[in-house]
Write a protein that binds this DNA or RNA. Sequence first.
DNA 1: CTAAACTAGGACTGTTCCAGTCGTATTTAG
DNA 2: CTAAATACGACTGGAACAGTCCTAGTTTAG
Lengths: 160, 160
Amino acid sequence: MLRLSKKTDYALISLTYVASQGDRPASAREIAERHDIPLELLAKVLQRLVQRGVLKSQQGIHGGYLLARPADTVTVAEVVEAIDGPLQLTVCGTSDERCEQFSKCNIRDPLHRIRDRIIGALAACTVSELVNDRHDEPVAMPIAIGGMAIAGRRSHGSDH
Amino acid sequence: MLRLSKKTDYALISLTYVASQGDRPASAREIAERHDIPLELLAKVLQRLVQRGVLKSQQGIHGGYLLARPADTVTVAEVVEAIDGPLQLTVCGTSDERCEQFSKCNIRDPLHRIRDRIIGALAACTVSELVNDRHDEPVAMPIAIGGMAIAGRRSHGSDH
DNA sequence: CTAAACTAGGACTGTTCCAGTCGTATTTAG
DNA sequence: CTAAATACGACTGGAACAGTCCTAGTTTAG
Ligand code: SF4
Ligand code: SF4
């Protein structure tokens, strides 16, 4: 049904959130709780984004994830490919795979052209655009003005 | 993985073939044999295209399928929607469906915009373009010049 | 130095969706 | 009447996906 996977959905939500947090690393737990995403599943998504060089991780007790590159250089297309693998409309996508109809197929080339256009549509949107576009709660900026940031990070808690 | 279904694939192949045959109705069996598509499955695909007003059918012993409208008025987008249902990148596509993250989601609107662009890419290609684009065997045009067409329809046969 | 809060990553399971099959009814030319 | 075609719904097997579990490694507060 031409649908992108839930993992990709989670990845985009996470990237948008991480980008909105500036230099403060966001942990998987924090992202999961804020967006009601299963933690274990989200963790694997974030890890793959690190492998692909989209995020960088900081281990240890105050660790978390940060953007590895400026938000306007990360496209939706790249995220989709990182999580779901190369985008192919049909099984004859990467040439090594061919279907039963391959030799008698009369629509391969036009379909490949359409695929390229779809990739273009995905590549035209960057994470920074996603950040500017969201109009949800202002995230209640938990970062203090002067010094001594954080420490009140779970101030939004008591949710159950 | 953002892939369109095999049924849609079959639908596009069939429409391209039917369009290339002019006014001669093409039967499901003929299309299936020419392209190595399972007959029963193809039949259902063609039937749905009839329901959606893309094809028209002619029952009876010399029946088959014809385009219900000119080839340049049938877009790939329409075919995809006819077979796979309305195109939705995410589960929050048609508003009645909502996901666990709905209230906390920060990427709905941008994603909908991307979806619209993808639909645009699909709508930009018509069946008539598919027909002009194919560069497979010239189908050995079985249609006679003067009168008395057909009758040599299985001249390419002995394929098994 | 130890415990806590993290990331890293593989193995496993349940479910859903999809491709394909079967069976049966209906239409129509000859 | 019969053969060849469309029409349509029910069924099945398999693959992909969403989610869970378990274990290991890393960093820092105390
Ligand atoms: S039928 Fe044609 S377009 Fe579809 S997968 Fe096979 S070769 Fe590719
Ligand atoms: S997470 Fe957001 S974009 Fe994805 S399905 Fe839910 S509401 Fe739609």
